[in-house]
């Protein structure tokens, strides 16, 4: 669909350059140039993003004032201390796998945040922390993060840059390398946090076979069943994003979780209302969501 502004522009060009130019323009005019500054078809998505963002910002603002914020217990995150303690007692390393995501992926950033918290504890306990990376940029960010965590804990001497290393960008070569590490080094705890694809079960089953306590977390819903089957604890969906707040207990981060809960409550209320209205024969809710 050609906008009015574009048609006017083509007309003016035709007037200026004469009829011979008109044919050329008509042939080469772009088929679809949208000159609107706002896509009206996305208005409801925009409004829901704004509404949800406001709820989160409001919750963060409220959390700044202090007060107790209740967050439900997440078993997988409660087990982080247990996993690190086990590794320390057994004198074996902890293996932290960030998945195949790149540094711009939200799941990878969430995973790096958890790693930061884990690194603080391994620094305290002097437990070796091994992090094989499959992306060079992730590698450098992770090195900086872990180094800063060790510095913050007053243990810069315990930090070893060689323990955080690049393996390969190839999916199955990475899986093979990490599997080999598991079999040779027999880590007492394995963290699988981030974006995973078909290699998820290969890694989780190998970790299971060496007897490691495994804590997994992913936003890839197709890989979650594999993790639930093969790992001791699994962070499902949004629990991965809540982990950083949960572990650090910072009020502002916890406040954002509260805002997230408000969003979930709204969606849940919408679903219940929609089901009830559908049952009594009122269909405007389902029609609205189909059109959105």
């Amino acid at each position: 669909m050609i906008s009015k502004k574009l048609i006017l522009f083509l007309f003016l060009l035709a007037v200026v350059f004469g009829p011979s130019c008109t044919i050329a323009i008509a042939q080469e005019a772009p088929a679809d140039v949208d000159t609107r500054w706002f896509h009206t078809g996305k208005i409801w998505i925009f409004l829901s993003v704004v509404l949800f963002s406001c709820a989160i910002i409001f919750s963060i603002y409220r959390a700044r004032g202090g007060g107790d914020i209740f967050i439900r217990r997440i078993a997988g995150l409660e087990a982080v201390d247990e996993a690190i303690g086990r590794s320390t007692e057994m004198g074996r390393p902890i293996l932290y796998i960030l998945g195949l995501g790149q540094v711009g992926d939200v799941a990878t950033i969430a995973s790096m945040n958890i790693l930061g918290q884990v690194a603080r504890k391994t620094a305290d306990y002097e437990t070796p922390l091994r992090v094989p990376c499959n992306d060079p940029i992730v590698l450098n960010v992770v090195r900086e993060m872990v180094k800063a965590a060790y510095l913050d804990e007053g243990r810069p001497d315990a930090y070893s840059e060689d323990d955080i290393f690049f393996v390969t960008e190839s999916q199955f070569a990475y899986a093979a390398a990490v599997d080999g590490m598991m079999v040779r080094e027999k880590p007492a705890a394995v963290f699988l946090q981030g974006t995973f694809y078909a290699e998820s079960l290969i890694l989780a089953e190998t970790g299971n076979s060496v007897g490691a306590i495994q804590i997994a977390g992913s936003d890839s819903d197709s890989q979650l069943p594999f993790f639930i089957t093969a790992c001791d604890y699994t962070l499902i969906g949004e629990e991965l994003y809540a982990a950083s707040a949960y572990l650090s207990r910072e009020p502002m981060l916890l406040g954002s979780l509260k805002g997230q809960d408000y969003g979930k409550f709204l969606i849940f209320a919408g679903i219940v209302l929609g089901v009830i209205l559908e049952l009594v024969g009122i269909t405007w809710v389902s029609t609205f969501f189909k059109e959105v």
């Binding site: 969906g237 969003g263 979930k264 969606i267």
Partner: peptide
């Protein structure tokens, strides 16, 4: 799960 993930992504992005 997908709804939870989407809300989590927005929340994490805002943070």
């Amino acid at each position: 799960i997908i709804l939870g993930v989407s809300l989590g992504v927005i929340s994490q992005s805002i943070r």
